[in-house]
C-alpha cells in the first residue's frame, strides 16, 4: 500500500433525510422481496465479494471495498436468450423472448460504478432501443453507499468522480458510526422507493463515518488524454506496444468493467430447435475483429488494447458525452499481468 495515496479523508457532510439502522437492513430486504422484487447486494461467493441476489441481511458483505464484478450483469446479463426457433421440413417457427425484468434493488454499489449507467443507457438506446436492457434498468433502483475504504487500484477522483458522486444512483447512503446508514433519495424512482418501504427507515441524526477519497493519480490530465486521442497519428505509435505488450489478451478486464458492453449473438441447439443468445464479448479477443476473409484489422494485442483505451477515453465521451471509465479500478485488480490503465493515462497526458 502506498500511504500517500490512501491518506485522503473527506469531511463529513450530512445530507440525509432518513436513516437505516443496521438491524433494519433485513427488514428492507424482506420488504423488497415481499413485493416480488429481487435484492442484489455484495455478498461472499467463493472467497470473494461479488454482487448476488440475496435473501437475508446475513448474506450482505460488510467491510468490502467494492465487489469483484460490476452490477451490470443484472441489467445486461452475460448470456440471455433473445429468441427461440424450431425448424421442420417446410417452415421455421420463430418466437421472440420477453425480457425477464423483475423489480430489482441494487444495494451497496459504489458511486463510481453507478456512473456507468448513463453510458450504458445511451449505447443501448442509440438508434434502436434495446428493451432487454432498458426494461431492466427501468425496474432497477440503484442504492450506492459512499466509500469508507479503498485500495491502491481506486482512481475515481482521477476521472472526476468521488465517493460523494451521485450520477446514476437513485438513493445514496452513508455508513454511520453505529453500522447503519444515512439515506438520501436522489431521483424520483429513488424517492418513490423510499416512500414505498418507508416503514423500514427511521428518522433522526446519526454520525457518519468519514469517506475515503483516493488521491488523484499523479500526472494525469484527462483533457490532454482526450486531445491526444483525437489525433489518430497515435495509432501506429510504438508506445502502445511498449505499454501493453504484456497484455495476454484475456477478457477479464472487459467482463468486470462496469462500462464495457460489447456482445455477440449466437445460436445454440439441435438441427430441429434452438435458441438465439446475446452473450458478452470482448474487444480483447483476437477473433473479435477477425474478418471472414482472414484479414484482421486489429491483429496485434497492443492494437486491441489501444481500442479499449480509445473506447473509454475517446469513443464514449465523444459519441455519447458520457464517461467511458469510472475509475473503479476493477480492471487493474483482476489483470493477471497487472496492466494498469492509469499508467497508460499518464503516458497519454504527456
Amino acid at each position: 500500500m502506498n500511504p500517500a495515496r490512501l491518506s485522503g479523508r473527506m469531511k463529513t457532510v450530512s445530507m440525509a433525510d432518513r436513516t437505516l439502522k443496521k438491524e433494519d437492513l433485513g427488514k428492507l430486504i424482506d420488504s423488497v422481496r415481499a413485493k416480488g422484487g429481487r435484492f442484489v447486494a455484495p455478498a461472499l461467493l467463493a472467497r470473494q465479494v461479488v454482487f448476488r441476489s440475496v435473501k437475508s441481511a446475513e448474506e450482505v458483505a460488510t467491510g468490502y471495498i467494492l465487489a469483484r464484478n460490476s452490477f451490470k450483469e443484472f441489467l445486461f446479463p452475460q448470456t440471455e436468450v433473445i429468441a427461440e426457433f424450431s425448424m421442420n421440413k417446410d417452415s421455421v417457427g420463430l418466437k421472440g423472448v420477453e425480457v425477464d425484468a423483475p423489480e430489482t434493488v441494487v444495494f451497496g454499489a459504489r458511486p463510481c460504478e453507478a456512473a456507468s449507467l448513463k453510458g450504458l443507457r445511451t449505447l443501448f438506446t442509440w438508434d434502436f432501443v434495446d428493451e432487454f436492457y432498458t426494461k431492466r434498468e427501468d425496474k432497477t433502483v440503484v442504492i450506492t453507499v459512499g466509500c469508507t475504504s479503498g485500495d491502491e487500484a481506486c482512481f475515481c477522483t482521477t476521472v472526476d468522480l468521488s465517493p460523494e458522486s451521485t450520477e446514476g444512483a437513485d438513493v445514496y447512503l452513508r455508513e454511520t458510526e453505529d453500522n447503519g446508514y444515512t439515506v438520501k433519495g436522489l431521483t424520483e424512482k429513488g424517492k418513490k422507493f423510499l416512500d414505498t418501504h418507508d416503514a423500514v427507515f427511521t428518522s433522526g441524526a446519526a454520525k457518519e463515518r468519514p469517506l475515503f477519497k483516493p488521491e488523484t493519480v499523479p500526472a494525469v490530465d484527462l483533457k490532454r488524454v482526450s486531445e491526444r486521442l483525437k489525433d489518430r497519428a497515435h495509432y501506429d505509435d510504438p508506445v502502445w506496444a511498449k505499454l501493453t505488450m504484456k497484455c495476454i489478451g484475456c477478457g477479464a478486464c472487459t467482463f468486470v468493467c462496469p462500462t464495457c458492453r460489447c456482445f455477440d449473438i449466437t445460436d445454440e441447439g439441435t438441427a430441429f430447435e434452438g435458441e438465439r443468445r446475446k452473450n458478452w464479448d470482448s474487444c480483447q479477443y483476437d477473433a473479435f475483429t477477425l474478418h471472414a476473409s482472414g484479414h484482421n484489422p486489429r491483429e496485434h494485442q497492443p492494437q486491441r488494447w489501444r481500442n479499449r483505451f480509445m473506447c473509454k477515453f475517446n469513443f464514449y465521451p465523444e459519441k455519447f458525452s458520457s464517461k467511458g471509465c469510472v475509475g473503479c479500478g476493477r480492471c487493474i485488480r483482476v489483470c493477471p499481468v497487472r496492466l494498469d490503465i492509469t499508467e497508460v493515462m499518464q503516458e497519454f497526458s504527456k
Binding site: C250, W280, Y285
Partner: peptide, 9 residues
C-alpha cells in the same frame, strides 16, 4: 465467465 484468462495466461 468465459473470460479465458486461464487459457491466455
Amino acid at each position: 465467465i468465459k473470460c479465458y484468462a486461464c487459457r491466455q495466461v
